[in-house]
Design a protein around this nucleic acid. Structure first.
Length: 282
DNA sequence: CACTAATCCTGGACGC
DNA sequence: TGCGTCCAGGATTAGT
């Protein structure tokens, strides 16, 4: 399941292939994703140049517009917003494109004969549009990036005061901090020795220091390793990432804790599975 | 405002 | 073998 590291991996995989290229066409075969792909999107992006490829939270952002090499000026028309959902991936195809299969919902065809093909069996992904200068309800209310300096123990401590909800639910709230999905939430709470059920407002600043460091470390490590592979994530070049084998608690219910041998517990929080060690995490 | 539950979707695992 | 049932999950939306 694509979490932040997988999106970062995808960004790194596709950016060199599409940067500065002109979009020949957007070919939409299945518009019904998380939200419908806007009907006018194909027309909006046609013949526009890819100015930049960015990531915000788990959104992949492709800035497009016009670029003049003579005056070295760029004019941003807008941004294609892509979310991989739970089972989505983008694949880089060079040259001749094979016929689309069942869950391959759209292609972005570029002038250098590269095609970006979006696949998403569960269709929780999205492809949206933000016109330059306009508000985006997807991007405008997000919390800070977990890998940015402003995400630290002071930030989490202040934001969490008087919060009664569980710390695990708290760090998965995109308004608090983006990109910490279910897997990495369990992993970073284990690494920092915090019980996922503890109320966010009752966690000490010292513990939040451990937690912010753990979140940064686990995400950075996963990015370095090319993203976690669980079930159906495939990187942009079709190769899987290698982080799954390093998970310490996620998916290990009943197995013994790597540090104290106590069986790992699985519980449900906010309709999501949480894995933790009842002895190591207080 | 804080928090919870429902919702979208389909492949895979499991029980009978 | 095949059918039904349940589960996984991100992030928004509606409801309390």
């Amino acid at each position: 399941m694509p979490e932040l590291p997988e999106v970062e991996t995808t960004k790194a995989g596709i950016a060199p292939h599409i940067q500065d290229q002109k979009i020949r066409k957007l070919d939409v075969r299945q518009a019904k994703l998380r939200w419908p792909i806007p009907a006018d999107l194909a027309g909006l992006v046609k013949n526009q140049t890819v100015l930049a490829v960015r990531r915000r939270a788990k959104y992949l952002l492709i800035d497009i517009g016009s670029a003049s090499t003579a005056t070295k000026s760029e004019t941003l028309k807008g941004t294609i917003i892509i979310h991989l959902g739970m089972s989505g991936s983008l694949r880089v195809i060079e040259g001749k494109v094979p016929p689309p299969e069942k869950h391959e919902h759209f292609d972005i065809c570029l002038s250098n004969n590269i095609t970006l093909r979006f696949t998403d069996p569960r269709r929780f992904g999205a492809c949206m549009w933000q016109a330059a200068g306009e508000d985006s309800n997807l991007l405008d209310h997000l919390g800070p990036e977990p890998l940015s300096p402003e995400f630290d123990e002071n930030y989490l401590f202040i934001k969490s005061r008087k919060r009664t909800s569980a710390v695990k639910t708290f760090i998965m709230d995109q308004k608090i901090v983006v990109g910490v999905g279910n897997i990495y939430a369990s992993e970073s709470l284990f690494l920092s020795g915090i019980n996922p059920k503890k109320a966010a407002g009752k966690v000490s600043k010292a513990k939040y220091a451990l937690l912010t460091h753990a979140i940064k470390e686990v995400l950075a490590k996963a990015i370095a390793d090319g993203g976690t592979t669980l079930k159906d994530f495939v990187g942009s070049d079709g190769k899987p990432g290698y982080f799954a084998q390093q998970l310490r608690v996620y998916g290990r219910a009943g197995e013994s804790c790597i540090t104290c041998d106590t069986p790992i517990k699985q519980i449900t929080q906010g309709q999501r599975s949480t894995f933790y060690c009842p002895k190591c995490q207080k």
